[in-house]
């Protein structure tokens, strides 16, 4: 099921977020997933009423990337990964 808005998701509260230098970590027990700033930005915005298209546009602006199609592909794939690993949950 494709996610169209971040309000369809929630963070799994079992995962805490930590940061070392510029790397973010989503941690729950033995499970640790690394993320860069964009990954952490997405997780931080989860739960808000923000469409994935709008999220991609804002990422493009904030990080000066031009290829919106590629951003959308990457964001979809990243959200799918986080859902599969239990970092994010469907609302």
């Amino acid at each position: 099921m494709k996610v169209e808005n971040l309000n369809e998701l929630q963070r799994n509260k079992d995962f805490i977020i930590r940061k070392l230098d510029d790397v973010y970590y989503f941690m729950s027990g033995q499970d640790v997933f690394e993320a860069n700033e964009i990954g952490a930005t997405i997780v931080n915005a989860v739960g808000r009423d923000l469409s994935i298209d709008e999220l991609c546009t804002r990422i493009a602006q904030k990080y000066s990337y031009d290829d919106l199609n590629q951003i959308r592909i990457d964001v979809d794939s990243y959200i799918t990964f986080l859902l599969s690993e239990g970092v994010l949950l469907h609302e």
Binding site: K13, I16, I17, R18, K19, Y24, E37, A40, T41, N44, A45, L50, L55, R58, I59, K62
Partner: peptide, 18 residues
Amino acid sequence: LPHLEEELEKILLEGLEI
């Protein structure tokens, strides 16, 4: 207790608002 964790994460994630 959960609020403490929330506040800690706010500090760590500051600047990531989009």
